[in-house]
Design a protein around this nucleic acid. Structure first.
Lengths: 337, 337
DNA sequence: TTTTTTTACGAAACCGGTTTCGTCTTAATT
DNA sequence: AATTAAGACGAAACCGGTTTCGTAAAAAAA
């Protein structure tokens, strides 16, 4: 049985409340008594129970981070950013993985209503349904902050990147490098950031007079990896020789690389590729991959900072919206020597 | 204010204990009453407080995962494995990052003594000191399981890979490919898995009559990235033309690639490289990287499974030791066409 | 010296559950 | 008919803290 303040009180023949106050260095307690309590607590190696007090004051010092997966450089770096802030605030981080499943995401959020955490940072799963009520419900009960993959419908804080603009820039980059038949590989699901990236892509095409059929230029991929691979191969082998590719997410870039290898298409000679990706080793790929890199760590920091400000009642989350710029790295896959 | 069983009891004009028992489907309560309680609880959207009961029965349904970093494919995949098991058991996962700092690791473990979690899975930081008492202390108070980076001194469950053997195999592989001047880049710190890998390396050299000076063949790298880079470059540019490299950890492989690039050394023509790594995209590197891949997901699963067995009082952790095999992937960096 | 204020501490309620134990009613047993 | 057993529920303790409020003693003010 672990040491409690009741045991300390009993041994020292003083009241439980006195021990509690002494340990929190209350002015109500004399220095003499405080010293005694601290000494004895130290001697018994007293460690307070983390959740006992949380009942009374409703502070668990836990926050939840809900995301599709952790084996992804964007998300793992975001966690680093979140953890760096949480750590300075003495908070603990619970990580929840949805694996892009909306059912799982919903059941996780439902569980989070049980007072396990003081706030939630979330990047929604690709499969999320529009009509889900649970996000709004959670947002009512505790501070909820979206980062990167947001739900536009929910009125709460959001941290994102300039997706439309950076997708526009990426497409312009391909065009500047001479591409004339560009396609956009779009991730499955109905994420607003993906929509933004699609729009940036189309905006560039429009401005450059390269717009034809949206359906032929924006290729929706599947949730299934193998299916996606087939889709990609079919597009690349099509009669309309594609010479430029924008990948909306990192995973697709890897698939495009594999497909080009199998179809004996040379990157960047025959097909130029640029992708939204946070791979630190993009520069070591064969060929090195041009990327639009999101400031994952900074986004995590920003989201966590908003959360703690909200917990300190400093801000109203409804008003908050942070947009950070992505950075375009030009590498061999778009023709850099 | 959220709805509690006391509110339900009051509204239904029954005792709190009756509500509690009804909700847990106790046989003490009549079907009639249960129905009423369930209905009303559902109507009020009652969600039980996660930590209220934990005081009494000492079960938080939380586990801690302590690791050096998350932006590393081994660790992020291990988390996936852990999460997959934890999820089926209805447990929640707290992630703690040490960033290879022993002070941080110690303060984290100290905090975990406060009953925040029911058990701990840990991969120790490289900077950990031998004389730290806190690991043993935690192991006394709650189930503690080491995975991958273990502390040999502590008598508790461990999940690891066949480090000595796989390092031996990796070195043999280089020799079979014609390497005659092989060095082992060893990660900073004093981790037992690194020692095992060093031993496997030396064993191979010995058996092949290639052992010379250990100090010249096993190169200890620094905690500082830039310093490590300089060390690597100096070794590769040395007069004794190194033609084979074993990297004890993934990060070093990336540094070796950079160094070879800068020193204009061709991989695999002049230098062959093999590394302990879990990068899924190792095959897309330029050149593709031969790796010793650890079964990260399975290790996470195994560690979590041990923990839950221990929580169910099914096993004595002191006896447990799981060793999983790594897999050697031969790719271009060691000469595969 | 009397009154007021301050200091230091204790008793008890409280947070939201679980669990033990006692009691009353009804049904089964002898 | 008397006794026992089972069924259904309530009162209260408990888990380990925090917080409010009351009070005795000492110090300060009148």
């Amino acid at each position: 049985m672990s040491v409690t303040i009741r045991k300390i009180a009993k041994d020292l023949k003083i009241a439980v409340s006195t021990v509690s106050k002494a340990l929190s260095d209350s002015h109500e307690i004399s220095e003499e008594t405080k010293r005694k309590v601290f000494e004895y607590a130290r001697k018994l190696d007293y460690v307070p129970n983390a959740y006992a007090g949380s009942l009374k004051n409703r502070k668990t010092k836990n926050i939840a981070v809900v995301l599709p997966e952790v084996a992804d450089t964007f998300f793992s770096n975001a966690i680093n950013g979140i953890d760096s802030i949480a750590h300075t605030k003495g908070y603990h981080v619970l990580v929840y993985l949805t694996h892009e499943s909306s059912e799982r995401e919903e059941s996780i959020l439902q569980e989070l209503r049980g007072g396990r955490v003081d706030g939630v940072l979330i990047s929604v799963s690709g499969g999320i349904k529009k009509d889900s009520q649970i996000h709004a419900q959670v947002a009512k009960e505790l501070p909820l902050i979206f980062f990167d993959r947001v739900c536009d419908e929910i009125s709460t804080a959001k941290v994102l990147t300039d997706d439309l603009e950076s997708s526009y820039n990426a497409t312009n980059h391909l065009i500047a490098k001479g591409c004339r038949e560009i396609v956009f590989f779009s991730a499955a699901g109905n994420l607003s950031i993906i929509n933004q990236r699609e729009e940036g892509f189309m905006k560039s095409l429009r401005e450059n007079g390269m717009e034809s059929s949206t359906q032929q230029q924006i290729i929706k991929c599947s949730e299934d990896e193998n299916e996606t691979y087939e889709i990609i191969k079919n597009v690349l082998r099509g009669e309309k020789k594609v010479d430029g590719v924008v990948c909306s997410v990192e995973k697709l870039a890897m698939q495009v690389y594999r497909a080009c290898y199998e179809c004996k298409l040379s990157i960047p000679k025959q097909v130029k590729v640029i992708a939204f990706s946070n791979l630190q080793i993009a520069s070591l790929l064969a060929p090195s991959l041009s990327t639009v890199m999101q400031p994952a760590f900074a986004m995590g920091e920003a989201a966590a900072t908003l959360l703690f400000k909200s917990l300190a009642k400093k801000i109203d989350l409804k008003q908050e919206r942070v947009v950070l710029p992505s950075i375009l790295y030009e590498r061999e896959s778009t023709g850099k020597k």
